Amino acid sequence: MDLNRTPAQIANAAADEIRTLNHRTIDRKAFEQPGDVAATVEALTRLVQGLPQSLQQLEAGLNKLHDDQRIRLDDLPPEAVSQQEMRRRVVTVTSALQEARVTLSRLDHQLKWAVAPLSHMGGLWEGDEDE
């Protein structure tokens, strides 16, 4: 685990890996056995399960930056930015992150529904293909 990267670098690396997965699985031959599908869904489930914590920590980070008055807006002149306007924008972001966590919870639930039957699927026994 390389903790010397910025959070954005880590998130970009994760996004690149998902893009690689998407390209790799375009070919239906990427999965030789049902277990390959199951293992991939299980790994994606773990990824989804980790995202709510990431989003919660992003929210905490933004709130800390706001509390420390370390945010500026580049779409308004400084004299036009009130604390109320700044707070409104921070709340917009944190509310969206909270809703994303709810959505991820539903996604996690659906992935678990997929994993359950997948865990009982196996490939054909040797010789079954000939029958």
Rank of each mutant, 00 (worst) to 15 (best):
R87T: 11
V37F: 11
H23M: 05
D74L: 14
L58K: 00
A14S: 03
G35Y: 06
L65P: 01
N4L: 04
K112F: 00
N22V: 00
Q9C: 03
N12D: 12
A60T: 11
G61D: 11
M86T: 05
S82P: 11
S119Q: 15
D130P: 00
D75C: 09
V93F: 06
M86L: 15
T20E: 07
G50A: 08
D27I: 06
E59N: 12
V48A: 12
Q49G: 05
P34Q: 10
Q53R: 13
D108V: 01
P77Q: 13
R5G: 00
S82E: 10
L104V: 01
V48Q: 01
Q57L: 06
P34D: 06
A15S: 12
Q56E: 15
T45C: 03
A38T: 03
N22Y: 00
R87K: 15
L97F: 01
P52C: 08
R5C: 02
V102D: 02
L62T: 10
V90S: 02
F31V: 13
L55W: 02
A38C: 13
A30W: 11
P78A: 15
T6F: 08
L51I: 06
Q33Y: 14
A30C: 15
L3Q: 13
L44S: 01
R28W: 07
Q9H: 07
A80N: 15
K112A: 11
L3I: 11
T94P: 01
D130S: 04
S82L: 08
A80D: 15
A8R: 07
R5N: 05
G122Q: 14
R101L: 00
A13G: 07
E129R: 06
F31D: 10
R46T: 03
V91E: 12
D108L: 09
